[in-house]
Design a protein around this nucleic acid. Structure first.
Lengths: 151, 151
DNA sequence: GTCCGTGCAAATGGTTTGCACGACC
DNA sequence: GGTCGTGCAAACCATTTGCACGGAC
């Protein structure tokens, strides 16, 4: 099992619940539903997609609430936001720390590639710029295997 | 001189003018003013900053026009957009192709680091994911030398 | 019972659009 | 002179905010 993908969806759910509790945030049905979806999602969902899934179980849930829960989890570092200029933001609840993404510009699929040569790059940056690097963002855009075929 | 920073500001201006002309776009005073600013800017300006500079010379220029010119240059691949989730978008007219950036989260300065170990990373990605990589985005966020001192 | 979280609707703000006038070619 | 570009104001739309009710603890 890859070292940075070692959490089962149950572990992630438990971890997120623990973080909420330790900061004295209440565990509401809406929050629990969002946590479950994020802990289980393989597909980097958008707020709208989370909303649709939550509404299956809780049809009265409002979009504003989803936004608030997402903002809270982001604040607690339990959710990684992948913001895009056109506001088609996507979220990663399984690996809430910076890591590279590969994005298909056709089908909008987002994958997590395994990389070995990144740490070296990060160190080179710090050495050459004098910056204290806090976090980063690395996206590759292109066509996935499937979309290359049908093109 | 670094190989990917070989254009003087005059060369970039000429290049951008040539691209506009070759696509039969008119050279208006507003467009020329924006081109000059982009060709000379070292600081990855925002639309608002471009707007303020253009207004020094042409006080009647509207913000919408700047947006239109920026969109046009982006379309013609003469301008790199660095979009951020909070819409504080920034633009690079000197190197309109994807390249890494180092961003100070305090003073908002954006720099272009020199990197040697990036190509290798890109190749590793393509090999491991099967994607045909078209472009990429690599940002490092942190504190620049100056902001580390005053912190 | 208290106070936080939710749902609703209105506000926000960067960006885009429609349209008529004016200017580039 | 015809057409493209500009300036203005309104529209847009994802996201945020204010507020009163309801539920978690």
């Amino acid at each position: 099992m890859p070292k940075d993908d070692c959490n089962t969806s149950g572990d992630r759910l438990y971890q997120m619940l623990a973080t909420l509790k330790s900061h004295d945030f209440r565990i509401t049905p809406q929050r629990l539903a969002v946590l479950k979806i994020l802990a289980a999602s393989e597909d980097h969902p958008s707020v709208e997609q989370i909303y649709e899934k939550v509404r299956v179980e809780f049809p009265t849930t409002s979009l504003a609430t989803i936004y608030k829960i997402v903002a809270l989890l982001k604040e607690l570092n339990e959710l990684l936001e992948l913001g895009f200029p056109d506001e088609s933001n996507r979220y990663d609840g399984k690996k809430p720390f910076p890591h590279p993404h590969v994005i298909c510009t056709k089908c909008k699929k987002i994958m997590d590639p395994e990389l070995t040569s990144f740490d070296e790059l990060k160190e080179e940056i710090a050495r050459k710029t004098g910056f204290r690097i806090i976090h980063h963002r690395l996206d590759f855009f292109g066509l996935c295997r499937e979309c290359q075929k049908v093109e």
